[in-house]
Amino acid sequence: MRKARAGGDDEAVRQNGSSSRRRTDQHPGDGEDHDSSSGGVQDDDDDNDLGLRREIRSKYRDLINSVQQNREDMLSPSNNKLTEVLEEANKLFKDVRQAREAALDAQLLVVATDLGKEKASQLFSEGSAFDPSAFAEHLLSFMGLNRLEDEDDEPPNGCASDGYLPKDAWHRLARRAECCFRTAPSFHYMMGSFYTEPPPPKQRIERQRKAPSKEAKRIMPTQLKKMEESHQEATEKEVERILGYLKSYYQDDPSPISYYEFVIDPNSFSRTVENIFHTSFLIRDGLARLKLDSDKLPCIEPVEEEEVEAAGSFSRKQCIVSISPKIWRELIDVFEIKETIIQPPETQSE
């Protein structure tokens, strides 16, 4: 603060000095112009004139700035700075020729008037006037300002830099000022307050969204796998089961079994079809063979394990068995099939 103000003062001083110098420099020339022809000033020496205009404007701006920056000082009743500024402006106004300069002069007048108004309001206030600087001074003393050796008598500049405030200065003032406030003591939780953190709700939303998608992903492939596995396994198991029946039947009676007696389930046409289907795997894998007996009826027998490999070299023949409910019924009658050799799988009986 002090720097700023000091700077401003310096500027003002410099300004004053320079302006007075200029004036002495220029006055003779100006005077001549006035004497010869008052109207043709601008035309006579344009260069010099342009410079002069610029200078006048810049001086006006400096003046306005200094008034605005030092407003508070100018307001204090103890000095005459406002008058000084107005006198300065009057000097400048002598050289004003153009509208731009006049506008700046008017602007300065506005600022000065505002200041004047405020100064006047100070006079109107009843009783003692209130001086904020004095207030600040006394507050500093109250807050325990420790003034250092070179204590300036000049109040504004001196006190702004010298001395230092103790650490609890503001606490001290606050404690004394407390009685002016009827502030409700704010209440606080002894264990600190519950802190409502924004993240948790976000996480909750994420969790809710993720959970179902994961399950869905997991369910889909397992379902597919199960279907495939169960299908394959079921066929393989069924084929093995049928081979078991064929072998046990062959052990009991080691002669070729009539194919139809073996395959037909007299109680179920669909079971019969399934049996035919599964038995065909036995033939394909060479675990059983079909041949025609003396009556040219097909009969089936298991292939011994040693023979299985040898059988691989034989050329295979394919034949298609067709069956319909009608043929199935006829076959049951002809072969007098009462019972099925291949029992339905346990899963079904269960």
Binding site: M1, E72, F130, A160, W170, L173, A174, A177
Partner: peptide, 30 residues
């Protein structure tokens, strides 16, 4: 509260309204 006290005091003593410049200048002195 000390700071607030200073500000309120200046406003009150200055008749209810204070330009900010005056306020900042007073505070700078503090």
């Amino acid at each position: 509260m000390g700071l607030l006290f200073v500000i309120l005091s200046v406003i009150f003593m200055k008749g209810g309204v204070v330009r900010e410049n005056l306020m900042w200048n007073t505070l700078k002195k503090l």
